[in-house]
Write a protein that binds this DNA or RNA. Sequence first.
DNA 1: TTCGGCTTGTGAATTCGTTCACAAGCTGAA
DNA 2: TTCAGCTTGTGAACGAATTCACAAGCCGAA
Lengths: 212, 212
Amino acid sequence: MNEFTSRIPDATVRRLSLYLRFLEDFGRLGVSSVASSALAEKGGTTAAQVRKDLSHLGSYGKRGLGYSVAELTEVLRGVLGLDSTWRVALLGAGRIGTALFEYEPFRRRGFHITTVIDNDPCKVGTRLGAIRIRSEHQLEAALREDRIDLVIVAVPASVAQGLVDRVVAVGIKAVLNYAPVQLRLPADVALRNVSMLVELESLSYALARRRE
Amino acid sequence: MNEFTSRIPDATVRRLSLYLRFLEDFGRLGVSSVASSALAEKGGTTAAQVRKDLSHLGSYGKRGLGYSVAELTEVLRGVLGLDSTWRVALLGAGRIGTALFEYEPFRRRGFHITTVIDNDPCKVGTRLGAIRIRSEHQLEAALREDRIDLVIVAVPASVAQGLVDRVVAVGIKAVLNYAPVQLRLPADVALRNVSMLVELESLSYALARRRE
DNA sequence: TTCGGCTTGTGAATTCGTTCACAAGCTGAA
DNA sequence: TTCAGCTTGTGAACGAATTCACAAGCCGAA
């Protein structure tokens, strides 16, 4: 099993992302090797799950010892594509867009927001950090000039699909959507939705069930 | 099958939340009945999936016709616990906290943020909208006085666990976590994590795979 | 009333993900 | 070197979620 022949299931990829965070914590603490059980404990899962997940990457553990923190950190970075930087465009400089823009961990992980688009004429031309906000009309030009890899959508639901269609037409292959709308796009474009409402409502369901 | 005897799988609950949004859209458009295939099309899933999901609620469809938009909207609201309001406390009035506070759809769905806590002395006492920001020291008192049902965590990872322990001790049973840390809490407390990093990194994985 | 065209609800089949359980292998001590 | 104590990697068993496929049922037209 290795990263070239098999695709890793989505649920596993998400956990790998967590394991990487834990490994970095361990690294900072000076720990040089961890057992699957230690990662499981941090992640709220089981040791077997951790080992199965890691087995998708190849065989990096040492029996009797565990995994080298430094080595596994490197491997995970590589597999997750975090060994280079990604150029990111932010669509929408409202409340959520701005909060995302200033979220430090993105940059630390190699996601560089180099482009910000907003259709509010009052905002166009002003700066967000060091980035000049550009108009929606310049979308295609901006994406090409800045060689964008990935787009974050943080605009109102009503305009999201229209913008994304244009983004896809330019050849972007990854979209992170914060708009509360189900985007429709070609199968070869990777899409993740972050929906605050869905999460809250599933909590609401849990609370409502308790009352019965 | 009904909502009293069987618990609905988590994946289904999340989709129900989407269906509800679609139904509200249809309602606004004046549509009075929808087929499972219409909901599937909007949600990017299959008609069979929609019917299976809805079958958890009981039998509200009419063969040959579909589902009554008004009726199903009401049923979904009830099942998801959106027929009453929930009292929500926001921990952390930083960038993300503020953006969440001002996110209109929350209020529209019956989630009322009545309490805001921050440990920055400069912020305590100032207002966010109509809410006075209270100090971390008042956490327990505030949660009780305001009869909070649900807590949103939007504080730095380093302090999140400590705060949540106190929240749980007061008897809160639902937590929505935006801090990039895996919270540990009793099994009877419902927890949802929203991690921007996990989502971005899974997109990064998708992009990295394309390059091979 | 009868028929044709749709659409639901749901067992059965399938696919996908998790957990189990254990042989294989590393390390350090004696 | 041998042995005891851990821990990995992975088939096999299990369980959960999705998809298939079709009988049952509703509606409107003739």
